[in-house]
Amino acid sequence: MSHKIPESVLVVIHTAGLDVLLLERADRPGFWQSVTGSLDAPDEPLLGTAARELREETGIVADGAAIRLRDWQLSNVYDIYPVWRHRYAPGVTQNTEHVFSVEVPRDIAVTLSPREHLRYVWLPYLEAADRCFSSSNAEAVLQLPQQLKQARPCAAPPVAKKDF
């Protein structure tokens, strides 16, 4: 087993009305979060990681047109919860998390990865922040209204090429 890279993305999924989509972790029932995930390779672009994790965990595709990721240009460094440190190289205790958001229609189809999540819920952003188990996730949700006033959509994420 290779170790996880201690650099990740957090993607806050929301509607125009500031309802936020939260996912309940399969490995920790009762732990609610936004989309999160580590880089697959040290050179994977952050925007690509955000798009990949969004697609893998919810089935939502950031196409760069109707659904566009927003890079908040915000990073959080936090201590990795001890229960998950075994996934990282020995001695790694901190992770750097880069924050993104994506606005979607309220009726968008959500297809969870059953390996990662049990269920999802849409909540007004203040309620969503209260439900997040991670303080950095809760803080990002609370910052959502202000960030949307400042943030600009990103270009379309790079599409992985397949050899046929």
Rank of each mutant, 00 (worst) to 15 (best):
E116V: 01
K149W: 07
H86F: 12
P145E: 04
A65D: 09
P105H: 13
Q94V: 10
N76F: 13
N95I: 14
G37N: 01
D163W: 10
E103I: 09
L112P: 02
L126R: 15
A41L: 06
I80S: 00
R25M: 02
S2M: 02
R152S: 14
W32A: 05
Y120S: 14
L144R: 10
H117S: 11
C154N: 08
L69T: 14
E56C: 01
T58G: 03
L18G: 02
A140E: 03
A89P: 00
P29F: 08
A151P: 00
R85N: 00
A155V: 12
V99A: 08
I5V: 12
K161H: 04
E24Q: 12
C154H: 06
A16W: 02
D19E: 14
E53T: 08
E97V: 14
E127L: 08
P124H: 14
D63E: 09
Q147G: 02
P42I: 07
A129C: 09
A129V: 10
Q33S: 04
A156R: 12
G17P: 00
R106D: 13
L126S: 13
V141S: 05
P114K: 11
L47N: 04
E53G: 05
C154D: 12
R119D: 13
P124Q: 14
A66F: 04
N95L: 13
S134W: 08
S75A: 15
V104L: 08
E56L: 15
D163H: 09
M1C: 11
A41E: 10
A89R: 13
E97K: 06
P153D: 11
V104N: 03
V159I: 10
P45F: 11
K149H: 07
H3Y: 11
P90Y: 03
R52I: 00
K4R: 14
Q143K: 15
Q73A: 11
V12K: 06
S8R: 03
R87N: 07
Y125L: 13
P82N: 07
V61D: 09
L46K: 08
R55D: 14
V159W: 05
A109L: 09
I13H: 01
L118M: 13
S2G: 01
V99Y: 02
D107Q: 15
L144N: 09
P42F: 08
H117E: 03
S38F: 03
I5E: 00
L112E: 12
E24M: 09
S38D: 14
A41S: 13
G37T: 01
S136G: 02
S75Q: 08
Q33W: 01
P153R: 11
K161V: 06
Y120N: 10
V121C: 15
A140N: 05
E24P: 02
H86Y: 13
Q33H: 03
K162T: 03
E103N: 05
I108E: 13
R55E: 15
S101K: 05
E7I: 10
L21F: 05
S38P: 01
